[in-house]
Amino acid sequence: MAQSSQTPQQGEKWEDNPPYQAQSPEKFGRVFWHGSCQCGQVKYQLNREKPLDAKFCHCTSCQRLHGAPFQWAAIFHKSDVNFLNGHNGLDFYKSGENLREHSLPCKVLCSHCHSPIMDEGRNVILLFPELIDFGTGQRKKEALDLFAPR
């Protein structure tokens, strides 16, 4: 499985780079997790079992975006994510400049229900684990342990 975390080069379209370029199952590799937004319009897969790291952020921007005292984010390489519908159904927001465009770093949201999906940086993404289907019972407990901030 490829672990490229390259940023788009001058003149390249963001749609042609991970995590937005559609990948065949053979190229993407083994799928460990599936996730989706609240309404189900945006669906994605993860080919990494455990995030590179995880964190709780309590900055004012995250508090406003999530309407909560903090956000939980799991850090992945961009190539670890495969959107099943490619880049369709996504909106972007660059909070520092108040722009609704794909300009890194930016926030990625469902264009229909407006669920925050992830924060996209230049080299990695901060994915929101609440959107991942961890299953139930012991499987869910084990998964939550994998995604817990250390």
Rank of each mutant, 00 (worst) to 15 (best):
L46R: 12
R30Q: 13
K13A: 15
N98A: 15
F147D: 10
E142Q: 04
F147H: 04
T60K: 06
G86S: 15
Q138V: 11
C106S: 13
Q6N: 14
I125Q: 04
D133Y: 06
P116H: 08
R150A: 14
L84T: 08
Q10L: 12
Q9W: 06
G67Y: 03
Q63H: 01
L65N: 04
E15S: 13
H58L: 03
A148I: 05
W72N: 06
L144V: 09
K107T: 05
S95Y: 08
R64M: 04
S79Q: 11
P18Y: 11
L99Y: 03
Y20L: 08
N47I: 05
T60P: 02
L126H: 02
N82V: 01
W33K: 04
D145F: 02
G67N: 00
Q38I: 02
H66Y: 09
R150K: 13
V42T: 01
R122M: 08
F56I: 01
A148V: 09
S95A: 12
F70I: 05
K140G: 09
C106E: 13
N82H: 04
F128C: 02
K13F: 08
R64D: 00
Y20C: 01
G67Q: 00
E130H: 06
V31D: 12
P69N: 06
F70W: 07
H34N: 14
G67W: 08
E97N: 10
G135N: 05
C59A: 09
A54I: 07
V42E: 12
Q63D: 03
L146K: 13
E97G: 00
Q10K: 15
G86D: 14
Y20R: 04
Q6Y: 10
R100I: 02
D53H: 08
G11L: 00
P18I: 03
H77F: 06
P116C: 02
S5D: 10
N17L: 12
R64T: 00
F147M: 10
L46W: 10
E12G: 05
L126N: 08
L131G: 12
F83W: 06
G67A: 05
G29S: 12
Y93H: 09
L52P: 02
T7F: 14
E142D: 11
W14P: 05
D53E: 11
P8C: 01
Q63L: 01
C39V: 03
T7G: 09
L126A: 15
S79N: 09
H87E: 14
G40S: 01
L131Y: 09
E142Y: 07
Q45W: 05
Q63R: 00
E49D: 15
F83D: 04
F147P: 00
L109V: 01
P19S: 07
G96P: 05
L52D: 08
E97Q: 14
K94C: 07
C59N: 06
G35K: 04
P129F: 09
R150T: 10
H77R: 15
A148T: 13
H112F: 11
I132M: 07
L109P: 00
C57M: 01
Q10W: 11
S5V: 11
G89C: 06
H112Q: 15
K55C: 15
K13G: 13
F56C: 04
Q23H: 08
N82E: 02
P8A: 03
Q38H: 14
M1I: 14
W14A: 14
F134C: 02
E101C: 09
F128S: 03
Q38W: 08
A22D: 11
R139P: 02
K107D: 03
S61K: 05
D145Q: 14
K140S: 13
C57Y: 00
G89P: 05
E142H: 00
G11N: 10
